[in-house]
């Protein structure tokens, strides 16, 4: 059963056509990794799924509800409910800098889900343990490393018990030696049958964790398949040149 179903998604920023008709389906428990050169539209596609960007044409269904159908968006109240099924992790973490880790976690459950304090705190305890940061609960974000910030951001998303987790280049802003701790947390989530859509440049991660890899190029899905099909058996010229560039840039970076 598809939990996300996008059909004919088109999006432009002025004269720049970013998405030129994208179809994407994600089934329950599936881990989909989207790769592609910068400017290929992969982040935009992800942001459209949770209505951070609005599409111009096409439809996006989440579960059995339409976020947008033939370019017409649902009412604000419905949009809110539909977005609520998804959690999002950003490249730059976007933690609330004026709140401790703990407050970052319980804010939305208390004020959006109207959870009672005890329940929210139990949940916060659970997700912080899951990402291995219980000892940082009273720290402000500025006192955390990039990797720790991103793990808190993942924990914050988990607080809302989303059915789908979206990751927008979660390790791109991190020092290379800090990506591992974030990827490990994500790998654990993937093992626990979470539904995840991940935009990333981490090819090793895609190979090891993805159920399906999507290669985007110039606003369309150029190719999709299992990691084996994409990384080993493909002779798609664009993909091969993209992967070749990735390899050289990876070699240029020590200690990855």
């Amino acid at each position: 059963m598809n939990i996300i179903h996008a059909v004919g998604v088109k999006k432009d920023f002025g004269a720049l056509e970013v998405l030129k008709g994208v179809d994407l389906s994600v089934s329950q428990g599936e881990v989909v990794v989207i790769i592609g050169p910068s400017g290929s539209g992969k982040s935009t596609l992800l942001r459209c799924l949770i209505e951070l960007e609005r599409i111009d044409e096409g439809s996006i269904y989440v579960g059995d509800r339409a976020l947008v159908e033939n370019g017409v968006y649902a009412k604000e109240k419905d949009l809110r409910e539909i977005r609520q099924r998804m959690g999002m992790v950003f490249q730059h973490f976007n933690l609330f800098p004026h709140m401790t880790v703990w407050k970052n976690l319980i804010l939305a459950p208390l004020s959006v889900l109207k959870m009672d304090k005890k329940e929210a705190e139990d949940r916060a305890f659970e997700v912080l343990r899951q990402v291995g940061l219980l000892d940082k609960r009273d720290e402000l974000p500025k006192n955390l490393s990039g990797g720790q910030k991103q793990r808190v951001a993942i924990a914050r998303a988990l607080m809302m018990r989303p059915d789908i987790l979206l990751f927008d280049e979660p390790t791109s802003a991190l020092d290379p030696e800090l990506t591992g701790e974030v990827l490990t947390v994500m790998q654990d989530l993937a093992r626990n049958d979470s539904t995840m859509v991940i935009v990333t440049h981490e090819m090793e991660f895609a190979k090891n964790v993805a159920d399906r890899v999507i290669f985007m190029n110039e606003g369309v899905i150029a190719l999709e398949g299992t990691p084996k099909e994409i990384f080993e058996n493909s002779n798609h010229s664009r993909l091969l040149s993209f992967l070749a560039r990735k390899d050289t840039s990876a070699e240029a970076m020590p200690s990855t």
């Binding site: 977005r83 998804m86 976007n94 609330f96 804010l107 939305a108 004020s111 959006v112």
Partner: peptide, 27 residues
């Protein structure tokens, strides 16, 4: 105030009032 703060608040489902009073104004 960084645009990412509004986005994070939006995906968490905060209302406009909460975004203002709890996220934007303190910063």
């Amino acid at each position: 105030v960084d645009a990412g703060q509004y986005e994070a608040a939006k995906v968490l489902g905060l209302t406009k009032w909460h975004v203002r009073t709890k996220i934007v104004i303190p910063q």
